[in-house]
Computed example of a mutant assay.
Amino acid sequence: MRHVSVLQLLSILVRFFLISVIATLIVLIIRQWNEGMTLFQSSRNFLKLNLFQLQFVAYKDKVETARGLNFSCGLKSYLHKWKISDDFSYKFEPIDVSKVVIVTYASSNHFFEARRALRSIRSVFKNKIIFYDLGLNKNEIAELKKVCNLEVRKFEFQRFPNFVSRLMGYNFKPIIMAEVFSEFEHFWIADTSVRFFNVTPFLTDFYNNITSSAIETMALRHPSSHSIFAATHPSMYEYLPIDAALAKELEMLDANTMFIARSEMTREAIKWNALCALTEECMAPSGEGIYCNFREDRYTMRAGCHRFDQSSINIIMASLLERDGWKRRDRVQDDSMRNFTIVKRGDGDGLPLSIPCQ
């Protein structure tokens, strides 16, 4: 009798185990179905599961040309927090010029430039300014609080991997873009070297061109006079691949001045840029700095330098524009931002800020 009971117990355990396995497989299949991928593509993909979604895809003439290495699945929590994961979708909304936000940032060694930048912004805009503190002292923060309609935000380096705190890696910029994107429909990203001037009527025309799709919703328009290829570390291509001929053909655009409007393209661009910024070997591969040694050919020959976030956003946008069939910009320089912005590096002063609301 005891022997029969043991057999029955074993039978119950086996059935329970099989039911558990089947239930687990059903849950996995449903989850993968909802996330838009086939679970059993191969044994390799079965093991990787969702990692497939974190591969950047390169395009040329609407055709896929390459896939990058998978970004860590552990970075997905950042994407959800910033509302830039594939669970979110955005449509372009009309630009309300009064609600466009201007975002800038500085540490103490660039605060003398920041003073001129803020005076420049306030000379043409009444809009909200968000200033990210990358390492300011209390006197500098006190100055910022004397600027009308300006919010100081402490960049919380402790929330991110340690390498993000190295300012010369520029990992902070894509993170700032992602944070602001989660809050605002339209905003400018501007280095402290950027000066605004003479915005009427040129800025109105610029906004109208974005609304009419003559300009993309993540707009960079300061040409650098060299190609993407010339100033990008080859290791970045492991995560963010690009067709080699395209990288040599396309003008790299400066990332010191960017206008960003929410759209599905912008969400994707900011997502990939943030993933690269949170991956040390993607954004800041070792071995090369920002200073270039250009040769006679500034397009097909490397200059032994790397432009960090500027390289990443140029590669990403090049692929998205190729995928979606936008007219290739080649070396035709649409420099429409230069009608109302100029870059003046090292241009600063020691006069304390005081710009009260009127």
Rank of each mutant, 00 (worst) to 15 (best):
K48M: 10
E251A: 08
S107D: 13
L240V: 09
L353F: 03
Q333F: 12
C276Y: 01
T38S: 15
A58K: 02
H306W: 00
G287D: 03
Q55M: 10
L75V: 03
L9Y: 05
A277D: 01
E280N: 10
I270R: 02
T24H: 08
F202C: 03
G135C: 11
R323Q: 15
I95G: 09
M283S: 03
G304H: 04
L275C: 13
T211F: 05
S212I: 05
V21R: 05
R31P: 00
D96P: 01
Q55K: 15
P285I: 00
K138C: 02
D334C: 08
R44D: 13
T192W: 04
L118M: 10
S123A: 15
Q333S: 11
W82V: 07
Q8Y: 09
L18A: 13
D334E: 04
E185I: 00
S77V: 14
A178K: 08
G135R: 14
R262A: 00
F229V: 03
A261D: 00
V164L: 14
V4E: 15
L28K: 13
I228Y: 01
R44G: 11
P201T: 08
E322S: 02
D324C: 03
L203R: 02
I260Q: 12
R115H: 01
A245Y: 00
L240S: 07
K99Q: 12
V103T: 14
I260C: 07
